[in-house]
């Protein structure tokens, strides 16, 4: 009985670690979605690009992981910014609606996956060879890496919170998020805000991509697979308070996927999307709305 209780703590620890990855992606996705109403599926491609840049630099060119990680995150930020600059904005400028943007985003993600598949062959690409250090609490083993991720996520959330709540750009983001038309009338610089949001949100996805490529590895479709969970996390949290929403949604999804993975991996999708459907029926504006 004791061992069984401990194994649930072990599963919970895995869930918390997964929540860290989800939280980074969720926050970026929620920032873009709540500010510009863009269902940014290509966030998956940004995540994947960072992972592959990191993998290529560390494994093929034997770069230091910190330098490779920095380049990968910057690369992801620029890639996300380019997606808005060269894809979304031209569509919107020429009168295309959000559905057109959504389709373009989906198309870009599929192109990204196909190109990466052609270039890499699609096998799992794991950047690390070495072992990770553990700390053990009784029979529950936790990797120091996971603890570091949780701390880094905490710091990044804190910085992002200060950015949104305490800076002029943040004020513009909140204004655009509340009422875009009115924000324009009162002189909010929408273009500059747009650049900032896409750069920061994509950098967050980049951090998640680097962490994933280092640890469990990345495949061409890894971003899409995780993004489905992120959609649900963001919808669970709702868009009233994107920080709390993304955090609560990610935490819930991390625990749900870990528990379902423990009981029966086949049930992960059933649980994740079952929650989504129930939520859409009973709390369509999110749990925290």
């Amino acid at each position: 009985m004791g061992a069984s209780v401990m194994i649930w703590f072990q599963v919970l620890a895995s869930g918390l670690s997964l929540s860290g990855y989800y939280a980074l992606l969720s926050l970026g996705f929620a920032l873009i979605f709540s500010t510009f109403n863009i269902f940014h599926i290509a966030h998956a491609a940004v995540f994947g690009a960072a992972g592959y840049i990191f993998f290529g630099l560390t494994r093929s060119l034997a770069w230091n992981p910190w330098a490779a990680g920095t380049v990968a995150v910057l690369g992801a930020a620029v890639f996300g910014w380019f997606i808005d600059l060269l894809l979304y904005r031209p569509i919107l400028r020429r009168g295309g609606g959000m559905f057109s943007v959504f389709i373009a985003s989906l198309g870009l993600t599929l192109i990204f996956e196909a190109v990466v598949l052609a270039l890499t062959g699609g096998s799992l690409s794991v950047a690390r060879e070495g072992a990770l250090q553990l700390v053990e609490f009784g029979s529950v083993a936790i990797r120091l890496y996971d603890i570091a991720i949780v701390l880094i996520v905490g710091v990044l959330y804190g910085l992002a919170y200060l950015w949104v709540m305490r800076t002029r750009t943040g004020m513009a983001i909140r204004a655009l998020s509340n009422n875009e038309g009115l924000a324009r009338v009162v002189g909010v610089n929408t273009m500059r805000t747009r650049h900032s949001v896409f750069l920061v949100a994509s950098a967050l996805a980049g951090v998640a991509g680097v962490f994933t490529a280092f640890d469990s590895g990345i495949t061409p479709t890894a971003g899409t697979q995780v993004l489905f969970i992120i959609f649900v996390a963001v919808l669970v949290g709702g868009s009233v308070n994107i920080f709390l929403g993304a955090l609560v949604g990610s935490l819930l999804m991390g625990i749900v996927t870990a528990v379902a993975g423990f009981i029966n991996p086949q049930w992960v999708s059933v649980c994740v999307f079952g929650i989504l459907i129930l939520l859409l029926i009973f709390r369509p504006r999110g749990l925290l709305a």
């Binding site: 895995s14 794991v126 990345i218 495949t219 423990f262």
Partner: peptide, 28 residues
Amino acid sequence: GQPEYRGIVARAKEFNPDVILIATQGTA
């Protein structure tokens, strides 16, 4: 191709085996 296996490895931990056997196809 779905590299998150901590759920199923927790099942192995719960079983507390003397040995782990991996029937392999040689993938990463």
